[in-house]
């Protein structure tokens, strides 16, 4: 417990440092927000084009699809806010030997490298996702209970951790195979699967996306809470997946550190 509090304090401290840092580059905020709005606008047009041809795709109507889009947006943005930069930077840190100082500190090294930088623009950007969901719920006329909100947030968190685990594992493959920038592309491509309803995929692929590469657990599950249709069994399953992925990450990290070469400048 004492340790837990200490780690929370460290997280806040690093977030504070990043805020001080980011204040120096304020204009980034606006441009980033602008980009995200354009991106979302494009997604809307896509959805609009698709639903001008039909009423329902994989059993999701247009506003349910918007909820899925919004959920996906929140998860991706929050993942980017806390972990994305850290994971990409990790590749160079491993290659160029910049992990040295992390390793000599009396603190969990994975924690340090994973949370060092916070990208504040992404936090503000995630708000757009909440707005989309709110609007879609209003259009659908569904009322949401506080329990559902809590479950939704829990599964969003779970989704972020799954994305983190996958990206982190890809980054630290650098320990074994040198430069791994193309692996990030793999990450990007895999996250494609979080965008659409799982029902559109064939059975075999759907099973893969629920287990080995649980992209449907990431976004479909939380969206289902709001759309209706998430059973409690699935809830436990989602959390089990999240926890086991985190455990794999920790194990892989400790294996990787044994191969760390600490290149000198």
């Amino acid at each position: 417990m004492k340790d837990f509090l200490r780690y929370c304090r460290m997280t806040l401290l690093m977030m504070k440092n990043c805020l001080i840092r980011e204040m120096q580059f304020r204009s980034n905020f606006i441009i980033r927000l602008f980009t995200e709005v354009i991106w979302l606008g494009m997604q809307f047009i896509y959805v609009e084009v698709l639903y001008s041809l039909t009423q329902s795709i994989g059993g999701w109507n247009v506003w349910e699809m918007v909820i899925l889009l919004g959920t996906n947006h929140i998860i991706n943005q929050l993942f980017e806010a806390f972990f994305f930069d850290n994971c990409t930077k990790l590749v160079d840190q491993i290659r160029l030997g910049d992990l040295d100082f992390v390793l000599v500190k009396p603190i969990n090294s994975q924690f340090m490298v994973s949370l060092r930088y916070t990208d504040y623009a992404s936090i503000t950007n995630s708000m757009a996702g909440f707005a989309m969901i709110g609007f879609a719920l209003h259009k659908l006329g569904t009322a949401i209970t506080p329990v559902e909100v809590l479950l939704f947030l829990l599964l969003v968190l779970n989704g972020i951790f799954i994305l983190y685990s996958m990206m982190f594992c890809l980054s630290i493959l650098t320990f074994w195979i040198g430069r791994a920038s193309n692996l990030f592309e793999l990450y990007y491509q895999l996250t494609q699967f979080t965008r659409y309803p799982g029902e559109i995929y064939r059975f075999g692929l759907r099973m893969v996306l629920l287990t080995a590469i649980p992209m449907l657990v990431v976004s479909n599950f939380p969206a289902k809470v709001l759309v209706g249709g998430l059973l409690s069994g699935r809830l436990f399953y989602a959390c089990a997946i999240g926890v086991s992925f985190l455990l794999i990450t920790t194990w892989l990290w400790s294996m990787g550190l044994k191969r760390y070469r600490s290149a000198s400048s």
Binding site: L50, T54, Q55, S56, I57, Y196, E199, R202
Partner: peptide, 14 residues
């Protein structure tokens, strides 16, 4: 998969 679902959905009409 997405377009397949669109073209094969019940209410599909170009």
């Amino acid at each position: 998969y997405l377009w397949y679902a669109v073209f094969n959905s019940p209410g599909y009409a170009w």
